[in-house]
Nucleic acid binder design. Structure first.
Lengths: 234, 234, 234, 234
DNA sequence: CATGAATGAGTTTTCATTCAT
DNA sequence: TATGAATGAAAACTCATTCAT
């Protein structure tokens, strides 16, 4: 009994669920390549666990790199979240703008416009991935990270509201929608709420247990068309 | 987003002192008194910080007791959350039932019924307190604590849907609402979504920055009345 | 949702494995009755878990009383162990003395005496209960509680050695045993070791897996009779 | 037994500093070096205090590292003990095997063989260090950690018994020992018990107060030679 | 005498962060 | 740039002991 041998099983190296390839390949990337890799991993981890529950080690593992390397790119956990939000927010912003332009650029009746708007909205909900993660982050951490609330307010809510209002104005102008549609404050929010709530329900209940999107979308459009129609006299 | 973690607001200074009584005497309470006290504190802490972010010491401080005492009543942090959810869920359930009965017991036109339903829904959103906390918990932690998702699905979503459908049926039966109202799946969800989303917006943006409730409520009711009306021919 | 109800399941009162009778019966005992009850419980707990591993709450539970009551009788955990050892040690001491006298009082050949001695020794090993617990305590805690070592040295080892020597002397005197038997230091220890080791083996391996007592006893006696015999010329 | 817990001897003062190197630099070692270092420290601590009494902080201090580092290598206190036992057990096993071979490889009379066996056994007892610690651990914690009991049963007891039986067989074959020696079950255990008990006595009473090894060894061998001799007619 | 709620000083365990290699 | 061993401060949890009832 001269040397106490290292027990093979118990020792080091738990939680190696790297993503990246073999250890050789993963070395020496330029910051421009490494950064988005880390941010992607961070987004997933933060969205899944929340800020407090996220572990830097887990982010590193998801990114397939060592813990320490994160600190070459971001000075702290908080900074990583900040960067994550910004990185996430930028494309989301662009995508929203795109959708906005798409709707704005449309010709046709206001009813078709509305239908297109609704379709775009539910399409966003259907989509997996970054946006869902971002929403999760917003809902979960907005209270603690004001930038998230700001982004949601300015880039999501008010933009969406603006688009809806534009459509309403077009409909009223063309005589398709009742004139009140442009004068009722809060209407735009009511109009877009169901699609957004569908997203939240999916967050809470999961894809499987949440209300079916197609049905909601159809019922939603139908209700709006009737409810906004100029000819409608309740 | 300048100094990431939003300066730990209230509880920063090092855990605020007791709640009510004098900090001197060590009060001995019966478990039946102490338990809800702890659960109350836990609900606040969990809702405010999320499960991972919540600290047992903070719960104890909120309840005005020593850390260790919590473990006299609950064996672990997870168990405390579990108990908190259950305790929280029970009264919430009862209140929902009450609201349900109130609507069900109403006489009058379906349009009045609908108005009443909407009023009840927004009234819930307006109310501060435990419910808001519970919602926060659900949205934030449902993924990690299935009981929360279960509660939301069974006690909130499906109940609410049922009530809405009942109103729709009544309206169709009385000829006030168009017949499709009872046949369109997903309609009930669309109908109640705006009120629920209003709650989520308040969670994300705070009381001040969220869309105004009264406006939404009015626009919401108006849209529904028009959209559901039998006479409406879009 | 007015009061947060106490969750029935999670709350208080784990580990009630009282021994005593119904809660009414167990009240108000005179110290003379309560003390041994506690000491008994303490012995079991200390023997089973060791000093550090023993919990006062567990002792109380074993004794069927409340934690606090122990402190009416013993000022601290250490004091409880001390008292336990003393209480345990006293009867053990008496029993040892008795066995000593029994052997001393025997008439007959030294060989019979030796057989009787061996029988007494193994009988002790066979016996369950307090002694086994005391031995466990001694082996486990002697290092930390000198009184235990002292007791073992003075009351167990040296007494046992003395008895063995007396038998040897008798055998040599009667010519049955070879004269060296009284002059060889360490022989007495060697003679009694197997019975004691049998006890230790039972501690380590449990009743079931330890070497069979009957076989050891027979082999032991046989070996001694041959090995000590005056007629033996190896 | 005056001041119960025997004044915490060495480690009292507040945890002795490092072991070897300068306390300044933070040394980065390969796991293959650090692991045995920790296991060594753990063995000492566990042996000295028992599982329940051992403190992770003390293990860390003995190893000259920070508390947290232990958890880099072992997930919990229990796992550390487990690993310690395994690590400890491996060399012990090898040494036992060596001793076995040494005896097996001997030529000469069975009496010489027996003498050699006894010498090996007492030599083990005399030796300080890891073995003593392992024995302590086994005696103290076998009940709670079955692996310890298993190791003792399979690697110590049964091996030792086998060696003794081999010697007995050789002696009977050569006519030196009486034929019963191979047929008496339990004899092997009786034969090796005194050496083992000597170890236990040292554990209980300390080096100083335990029966003298040399005397026991001499008396032991003498008794065996006489008791096993073919020529002996008691 | 008796209870068990309450405390507080530890102990184990976790993890962001640092730094030797 | 990259690693993961190492640290330290904090958080979860335990339990001997106290004390209101």
């Amino acid at each position: 009994m001269t040397g106490m041998p290292a027990t093979d099983d118990a020792a080091a190296g738990q939680m190696q669920e790297q993503r990246g390839a073999d250890p050789e390949t993963r070395r020496r990337l330029a910051p421009a390549e490494r950064t988005p890799q880390i941010l992607e991993a961070a987004l997933e981890e933060f969205a899944e666990r929340g800020y407090a529950g996220a572990r830097m080690a887990a982010v590193a593992a998801r990114a397939g790199i060592a813990k320490g390397l994160i600190y070459h790119y971001f000075p702290s956990k908080a900074a990583l979240l900040q960067a994550t939000v910004r990185a996430c927010t930028q494309p989301a912003f662009e995508e929203l703008e795109q959708a906005e332009r798409r709707v704005a650029g449309m010709s046709g009746s206001a009813r078709d416009l509305l239908a297109a708007l609704i379709e775009v909205a539910y399409a966003r909900v259907r989509k997996e991935g970054r946006e869902r993660h971002l929403l999760r982050l917003i809902v979960t951490e907005a209270e603690h990270f004001p930038e998230l609330a700001r982004f949601y307010r300015e880039e999501v809510l008010s933009r969406a509201t603006a688009v809806v209002r534009a459509v309403l104005r077009a409909g009223v102008a063309s005589g398709e929608f009742a004139p009140e549609a442009v004068e009722t404050p809060g209407l735009a929010e009511v109009i877009m709420a169901p699609a957004m709530m569908a997203s939240v329900w999916r967050m809470i209940l999961g894809e499987a247990d949440a209300p079916a999107l197609e049905r909601m979308q159809a019922a939603h459009l139908d209700l709006l068309l009737k409810g906004l129609a100029a000819s409608c006299k309740p």
